[in-house]
Amino acid sequence: MNPLMRRERGPLSGPGIVVAGLRKRYGSAQALDGMSFSVRPGVVTGFVGPNGAGKSTTMRAILGLSAVEAGTALIGGTPYRRLRRPLTHVGSLLDAGALHPGRSARDHLLWLAHSQGLGARRVDAVIGQVGLASVAGRKAGGFSLGMRQRLGIAAALLGDPPIVMLDEPFNGMDPEGIIWMRGLLRGLAGQGRAVLVSSHLMSEVQDTAGHLVVAGRGRAVADASVAELVASASGGRVVLRTTAAARAMGLLARAGATVASDGGESVTVAGLSAERVVALLNTNAVPFSEVSAHRASLEEVYLELTREAVEYRAATSEVPR
């Protein structure tokens, strides 16, 4: 069992997404191979992994667009295809280009609203919310990718859903747009919504997500909070720089730490906090020039976790969809 897999924490407190054991094959490629995770309300869950790891397929399966061979994907306990007025349960954005180029942005939202029994007022509200009010009457075919993303977000928010699911929402956004998007995602989570955001770049979600699901080769290779992930990868290690390496190692080992030396002035300490290390050294008058916590970056964690998947990808070079 991967130590980063989430342990059972009992039933969800509010509406969320529970994905369990999804399996799907495209020809000879196993797109999903036991994908399992859950998305909780009130927090942004980042869904990261290299291209071809199964993120989009999982999202399509959650939305009932793709049939799976095994496993379930439930929205608050119900399969998507049984939801009544589904956009009021889950708002989603899979592909910002998914619109008729000849239809205006407002009309695009209008038909969606009609499909949920919603009125034009709600359309105007979300148009304002995503900042498209000035171009709402224009044909969506002329929109830039960033504008299409905003239109897609507006569609996702149309039903005021407790769950929002976005596939690569940062694609094509300018820096200002990215900042806006991060704020929006935090705000949505802050309102108590469950937010699932996929990305193939950890850097895009690490500042926003409170929780991460890392996908690789069709399954979740990690499902944990950002703090847990970082801590597990860093292992609470402390790096000590001292001219009295031998004395320090003996002292710290007796205090219960695991120590390792690089042969020079640098000693890596595991099992004691930096504060405790400093206190011990001071108490015993061991000279040192530097004590620092070794912190793995999320990027490192991510690369470590997905290395296997990336290698697999490079070897086959082609993964459908």
Binding site: R60, L63, G64, L65, Y80, R81, R82, L83, P86, L87, V90, S92, L94, D95, G97, A98, L99, H100, P101, L112, S115, Q116, A155
Partner: peptide, 18 residues
């Protein structure tokens, strides 16, 4: 067919999965 071409069919079927 334009819905298929633009992947709009995904939006249509998420708006109403029936």
């Amino acid at each position: 067919t334009t819905e298929y071409r633009q992947n709009l069919i995904h939006v249509t079927l998420t708006a109403d999965p029936g």
